[in-house]
């Protein structure tokens, strides 16, 4: 059987949780101020709960800065041993620059999952910044308190920690509408209900919308009703942190 979203005319799953995969939305965060700070050459720390959109923001910044010419995106959870800074720096800059082997001085480092970055590597990056080898740095992680930084890097980040706040109901509705359009299947009231049940987390909202829409469409309904939401998610906002568990007997 065709998946529910194909029946509605979507080729891909509109509620995919991959960071900025098919969709270009960032709602609820002031991206302009972040971009100003990068352009001015600052060191920023971006902090936020899982599923709030940290990696999506980084990807959006990459797009807005016109691709990866001067931007180096690296996710520290891939690290094996020491970070090869020289290799990373060589990746920045135009093709010619790379050919000649001259490191670009305008490189901007976007480092994701920095809880996995070692203290020494952090200090090396801080030194490069202080020597004006790199223009600005954005560090992203779940919680600033959980990350170990050396002296130089801590000094640079001081006062530049940006926390991703909660988004409003309107913004949640805009996210869902941005994915699925002005479809009658999901009304604004239903979206806000699901948002509350999802503990006001964007990723959970998308996951739950997908489950509810799938169930409703497979039942042949044209509109998602309260009974669908109750059946799939439970009427009371779910306080458990585990994802939905289905037991087969």
């Amino acid at each position: 059987m065709e998946p529910w979203y194909r029946q509605l005319g979507f080729y891909h799953n509109p509620f995919s949780i991959k960071p900025l995969s098919y969709h270009n939305e960032i709602y609820g965060y002031d991206l302009d101020s972040i971009q100003k700070k990068i352009a001015e050459g600052n060191v920023l720390f971006l902090e936020g709960e899982y599923g709030r959109g940290k990696t999506s923001i980084l990807k959006k910044i990459i797009k807005q800065f016109g691709g990866r010419r001067n931007l180096i995106y690296y996710s520290c959870n891939r690290l094996e041993g020491q970070l090869d800074l020289d290799q990373l720096l060589k990746g920045a800059g135009s093709f010619l620059r790379r050919l000649i082997g001259n490191n670009s001085k305008d490189a901007i480092f976007l480092l994701d999952e920095v809880q996995d970055l070692s203290v020494e590597d952090g200090e090396r990056i801080a030194r490069l910044y202080n020597d004006k080898q790199i223009k600005s740095i954005i560090l992203v992680s779940h919680d600033y308190q959980d990350v170990k930084f050396g002296k130089e890097l801590s000094a640079l980040i001081e006062g530049n920690v940006i926390r991703l706040n909660e988004i409003s109901d309107q913004e949640a509705i805009r996210i869902v509408r941005g994915r699925i359009g002005n479809i009658r299947l999901l009304s604004e009231a239903t979206i806000t209900d699901i948002f509350d049940i999802s503990q006001r987390n964007p990723r959970q909202l998308l996951k739950n919308c997908e489950k509810v829409c799938r169930y409703a469409v497979e039942q042949g309904a044209r509109i998602v009703g309260a009974e669908h939401v109750r059946k799939v998610l439970g009427a009371v906002p779910n306080k458990l942190e585990k994802p939905e568990i289905k037991i087969i007997q």
């Binding site: 949780i17 599923g51 994802p243 087969i248």
Partner: peptide, 11 residues
């Protein structure tokens, strides 16, 4: 864990 969409238990 946050990204896992569904946990299916085979009993």
């Amino acid at each position: 864990k946050d990204r896992v969409s569904k946990v299916i238990t085979l009993n």
